[in-house]
Amino acid sequence: MIDVRELSHAFEIGKKEKKTVIPVLEGVSFSVEKGEIVTIVGRSGSGKSTLLNIISGFIKPKHGEVWIHGEKVSDYNEGKFADFRLANLGFIFQSFQLIPSMTAYQNVELPLILKGMPEKERQQKTEETLKRVGLIEYKDHYPSELSGGQQQRVSIARALVVNPPLILADEPTGSLDSETENELLQFIQELNRDLGITFLIITHDEKVAAIGHKTIEITDGRVMEGVLA
């Protein structure tokens, strides 16, 4: 499903002579099989978020390759990656990233609008997904009117609505309390089990890491040998 090969990345800070290069990832390679839940753990600043952002196409890597679904996505331009994301990837963010001026329904419907799906079909699909995450009765609520857990479920519904084979999650439980966190993790496992969705989750939380079929530890931009479970 995902094949990361010799991925290296560095950030450049400052201008011209004062430019400083800070290496973030160095020769990272790993793969994720279809139907797996893979968690990437590491301390703050270890490069795990940069790794996820590169896989998501938000950052272009300096070296190395990223293959998803047999396609070398690291060579894609912005437009092509956008189309690829819309068709193949779902996202769950730590801070939910819902559009505040849109209701829960509208937030979930958004990817389908971008896909150009007809309104009737879109309505059915959106309501179905909201039912799945247990939020159908909150469909007309704005994000500010929902709890953290509910917002994250809207965010998951938005990721699920296009039936992506792969969901990338960046600290999905980072903004949730312990009880909601458990519920969410259970839900992720359910989706993986029932729908066969592959998850790649970035976390520093052991509880989250524990649901992974495989865990990759990143330290100082490198994958630690021998810690793959």
Binding site: S56, A82, R85, L86, A87, F91, L98, I99, P111, L114
Partner: peptide, 15 residues
Amino acid sequence: PDIGIMKAIGAHPKT
């Protein structure tokens, strides 16, 4: 921020 979210979930720059 809204544009960022839209781009993140797959909105094409042309859109």
